[in-house]
């Protein structure tokens, strides 16, 4: 059962076709990779799925609890509420806020107390805030950031900032999680830890995951299916084995040896 179906998705920037005629189908519970050379249009696909860009044409259909909904053209916050969350390749944390506030902000859409309670700090405020803080801490602990909760996000080392991006996305309670190069800038040890963490959160939070990644060791190890993008079009789709041996993919990645990756 597809949770996300993308049909003929196209985005042009002036004359440049950043994404053209992309078809994609992701099933509930799958962990799918989106790979491709630099500038292939991967991040643009994420921006289209999450409403940051409006598609030039094409449809994006999202299945939220059995109800199918076309989400192309919706505002990002509306898409987030439907159950799609993401991390950013170029880290966009709330830099000058604390680690825990980053997570609490992402939980805001599920907060139940209203404005009056926020003005007067009525009992519902204290109750909900306590709950919010507790849940945020739980998430931070899962991503090994519990001890850093009061640090400013900008003061975290790079790898931990990437972890916080994931914690913040999880805080929105997504059904589908989009990870844009979660291992960028990490060393091999950190990457292998992250690989395990991603598989673990998928099970723990009952998630479907679509991830962009250049690190083939990570991609080949955990992705069940892979889409390959080149110059804005999907040039291949299949299991890691199929992708490794696909001629067009090898050409697109000229010089890189996909067969050795993942060992």
């Amino acid at each position: 059962m597809p949770i996300l179906s993308v049909k003929k998705l196209t985005k042009s920037f002036g004359g440049l076709m950043a994404v053209s005629n992309v078809n994609m189908e992701i099933n509930k519970g799958e962990l799918v990779g989106l790979i491709g050379p630099n500038g292939a249009g991967k991040t643009t696909v994420f921006n289209l799925l999450t409403g940051i860009y409006e598609p030039s044409s094409g449809t994006v259909t999202f299945d939220s609890n059995g109800v199918k909904k076309d989400i192309q053209g919706l505002k990002p916050h509306a898409i987030s509420k439907i159950g799609l969350a993401r991390t950013f390749q170029n880290i966009r944390l709330f830099k000058d806020l604390t680690v825990i506030d980053n997570v609490r902000i992402a939980m805001h859409q599920n907060v139940k107390y209203g404005l009056i309670s926020s003005f007067l700090h009525l009992p519902s405020y204290s109750r909900e805030e306590a709950l919010l803080t507790e849940k945020s801490l739980e998430l931070l602990k899962i991503l090994k950031l519990g001890h850093k909760k009061d640090e400013l996000a900008k003061n975290l080392p790079y790898g931990e900032q990437r972890h916080l991006e994931i914690a913040r996305a999880l805080a929105t309670k997504p059904a589908l999680l989009l990870l844009d190069e979660p291992a960028a800038g990490m060393n091999p040890a950190e990457t292998s830890q992250l690989t395990e963490l991603i598989s673990w959160i998928r099970k723990e939070f009952d998630l479907t995951i679509l991830l962009i990644e250049h690190d083939m060791s990570l991609v080949m190890k955990i992705c069940e299916r892979i889409y390959v993008l080149d110059y804005g079009t999907v040039i291949a789709e299949g299991t890691p084995e199929e992708i490794k041996n696909n001629k067009r993919v090898i050409e697109a990645y000229l010089g890189e040896d996909l067969n050795n990756a993942g060992d």
């Binding site: 940051i52 505002k75 950013f88 902000i105 939980m107 007067l120 700090h121």
Partner: peptide, 26 residues
């Protein structure tokens, strides 16, 4: 009080990074 509430933090997140705030459901 407002600023120390979840609604206030939503406002602050817009100042910090409007695109990220939107992507987090604000």
């Amino acid at each position: 009080n407002f600023i120390k509430s979840s609604h206030g933090r939503a406002c602050i997140s817009i100042r910090e990074d409007e695109i990220a705030a939107e992507a987090m459901g604000i």
